[in-house]
Amino acid sequence: MKFVGVDGCKAGWCAAWVEDDRWGVGVYPLFADLWAEHRDARSVLVDIPIGLADDANRTAEKLLRERLGPRRNSVFNTPAREALHARSKAAAKAINRKASGKSLSEQSLGIMKKIAEVDSFLTAHPEAVEKMFESHPELCFAMAAGHPLAYPKRDVPGVVERYEILQRFVPDVRGLLDRVREYHSASKVAGDDVFDALMLAVSGRQGAGRLHSLPEPVERDANGLPMAVWYAEFDKQ
């Protein structure tokens, strides 16, 4: 069985996968390209919001922040569906403020195009919905470590912290990162993009057939898409 983890990057989408203990990594310009190659996966865990509330208030974000504690700032507000297709950042902020009483951060605005890409893809490919799971790398790292991580992912101690966790599950983390570097610079695919994709693939395999969700039971948006963040339980070390 194949398990895939996906993180957005400047070059498109960074994916990591494991199948029968063989690991791979790749970068895809479009989400549809990724699906075309990995539609045979048991699960695809994606670090992008799936399911959009009309009022921009998803229980998933609230519960995720509570779980992450010191890393709660890594959770960005998901925009209201109407704000997703606004013509400008200012318009998106205004629409979101009207819908929810909250504006949108630059981080949220920065991933709007990717949210829209995945939302459009899943609307056009309902057969993919049962395999696609919104997840969050910081939650997955925390579950594997047994506690929220101590350092931000781009700080040197944070890189070391995450590398050491991945080494427990992935035989050649350095080699996989080097493979990405053969074709993509760090400005297009950052090291943390690769680490995040690997951690999501690890979690997909760990939780095969038994992923848990925040919230539970799962909420759904007006289009029937799930609004939940999925994760796996790990054995205590």
Rank of each mutant, 00 (worst) to 15 (best):
R220L: 08
F121M: 02
V118N: 05
H38P: 00
N96S: 12
L176K: 03
V160R: 14
G110D: 04
P79V: 11
R65F: 08
E82F: 04
F76R: 02
L52V: 07
L139Y: 06
A128D: 01
G224M: 10
A60H: 09
F76N: 02
G191Y: 02
G26W: 06
V18H: 04
D172N: 15
S43P: 02
V159M: 15
E182K: 15
A232G: 07
A15H: 03
F76S: 09
V160D: 14
A145W: 00
A197E: 08
V18Y: 04
T123P: 02
L34V: 04
C140R: 01
D155N: 13
A11L: 12
K236L: 13
A208R: 12
N223D: 14
W17M: 10
K89V: 05
L166E: 04
M132N: 02
W230I: 02
P29L: 10
V180M: 06
I111K: 06
S103E: 13
V160P: 00
I111Q: 07
R205Y: 03
R97W: 05
S187L: 11
Q206K: 15
R71K: 10
H212S: 14
S103C: 05
D21W: 08
A92L: 10
V27P: 00
V180T: 06
A11W: 06
W230H: 14
L177G: 01
R72T: 09
R220N: 11
V189D: 00
V180A: 03
E127P: 05
L122C: 02
R154S: 13
V44E: 00
L84I: 12
H184D: 04
C140T: 09
G158C: 09
P137F: 06
A197K: 02
H125A: 00
D119E: 15
F195Y: 09
K62W: 11
K114C: 08
K102W: 13
K236Q: 13
I50A: 01
D7L: 05
G204F: 03
D235S: 14
E182Q: 15
L198D: 04
A91P: 01
Q237L: 14
A11S: 13
E61N: 12
N223H: 15
V194G: 00
D55C: 07
Y183T: 12
R87H: 13
L211I: 08
A91L: 12
R42I: 04
D192N: 07
R72H: 14
P148E: 13
D54R: 14
S185Y: 02
S100M: 11
E233Y: 12
A11Q: 10
D33F: 02
E233L: 14
L176G: 01
D235H: 09
V218M: 09
A232W: 02
P152W: 07
A222R: 15
E66V: 13
A150H: 12
V25C: 07
A32D: 11
H125R: 08
V159F: 07
D54C: 08
D178V: 03
A16G: 10
L139S: 04
G51D: 08
A201D: 06
A124C: 07
P137K: 04
G191Q: 03
G158F: 11
L52Y: 05
V160M: 12
N96E: 10
Y163A: 13
I95S: 00
G146R: 09
I115Q: 03
E106T: 11
Y231D: 03
W23R: 08
A80S: 15
M143I: 00
A86G: 09
A36W: 09
A208T: 06
A186C: 00
L52T: 00
A16T: 08
